[in-house]
Design a protein around this nucleic acid. Structure first.
Lengths: 223, 223
DNA sequence: GGATAGTGGAGAGTGCCGCTATCCATAATA
DNA sequence: TATTATGGATAGCGGCACTCTCCACTATCC
């Protein structure tokens, strides 16, 4: 298959495919002559993955490159590869911490308190995770943001959220064990993680609307 | 309080505050003389909300403007205001549909099938929800993406996700009913929705890491 | 064999977005 | 009085995800 057909089958414009190749998201086609290359189903599959990560997951091109390099890294334990991929999927991941500058400056009391909350939560649930991994940092960042905005009481729901997250993670793992071959495992987890976030967020919104219809239909706002 | 102090208390640079005022995210300060204005705690609060929506929620400035205009709209039923706000918090929300062009072109079989799945799910759960609202469209978009990437079997987990989402939504509502005054209700729901998404995503990742340690510690990848 | 369309590769350009810099006349502060 | 801060407005910047343009060449159709 040449680039034009790859473009037709995926709906991605030819120049965009070339751009992805340049950016290292997609391997180049196999050259059959100096200016002729052929692409296979692996390219098509990878291209669809890229678009899903981009359009549904909202990852940046740089983040996708990182994630894919973890997907393609060979010969480690699955747990380690999954961890490496997961780290790179948290929004705001980058070399040297969770997006913000941090290093020097005032101590940031909310963030420190939030980190402590997160450590306690992890201990309470008996999770075998590093409390300084990107996901834990992201969680602390969210809790700190609630604090700063005067909704610190919202931390009360953390345990209910964690309970639900465990259930969801169990469903994720069960699906992967049931249906996915080892070769595709990491890729499946990546796509499941990223578009699963979007799915869950949408479902939560639907559940909110439903609950709000029952609770707030006849109550009016201020003003 | 003048703009400098507002800046110091929130950590937002003065030019950025001016920019938010220009963009209609933040009301202007009350003028005390031709070039002197005073800001109150309401401004500080609103500014922190903006930063949380921007930094943690990843909303665009345009989306924040939309959401805030729903927050400030007076005199409707709470349910309607919440619905309006919720609609605007869906990633990719905009005038005329879910981000993509759609109108004309090929029918997009995956998306249609996914919409049908979503309708069935909503019926199955007995949710009192419009199946064409932005959240339902976003869900269909995610399901369609899974389909396109060859993970259509992932729809098997939809019910488990929905179950968990209901639990989370119940916790959200319980929190709001317990702790929030009517005046702050919409704002609290907005912040809870947006940073709750980030919290849940982080928790799911932590639960994944924990589960993966148990399941995949000794299995190696391909290559 | 000749016309037309498509190709790989690479650099430059585009449009949007969230700021940031600069300027100015005026006002607060030391 | 000298310095610093302010409101308001316009212009510029850096990053990002493309998209355009150009070129010599190749494939394909008649």
């Amino acid at each position: 298959m040449r680039i034009g057909e790859l473009s037709r089958r995926t709906g991605v414009p030819v120049p965009t495919i070339k751009y992805y190749v340049r950016e290292g998201l997609l391997p180049a086609g196999e050259l059959t002559s100096p200016n002729q290359a052929s692409y296979g189903v692996a390219h098509e599959r990878r291209l669809r993955l890229i678009r899903a990560l981009l359009d549904v997951g909202g990852l940046s091109v740089a983040a996708i490159r990182e994630v894919l390099s973890a997907v393609d890294a060979p010969g480690e334990s699955v747990h380690k590869v999954l961890g490496a991929a997961a780290d790179r999927m948290v929004p705001g991941y980058g070399p040297g911490g969770a997006g913000a500058d941090e290093s020097e400056g005032e101590p940031d009391a909310e963030l420190e308190a939030a980190r402590e909350d997160v450590r306690e939560l992890i201990a309470r649930r008996g999770w075998d995770v590093d409390d300084r991994c990107p996901a834990a940092e992201a969680l602390a960042g969210a809790v700190a943001a609630l604090d700063r905005v005067g909704q610190s009481g919202y931390a009360e729901v953390l345990d209910a959220f964690a309970e639900a997250a465990e259930k969801v993670a169990q469903a994720d793992i069960a699906y992967v064990k049931r249906r996915v071959a080892l070769d595709d495992l990491v890729e499946s987890v990546v796509i499941g993680t990223v578009v699963g976030d979007a799915m869950f967020a949408a479902l939560r919104r639907l559940a909110h609307v439903d609950a709000s219809a029952r609770e707030f239909a006849h109550i009016r706002t201020h003003d």
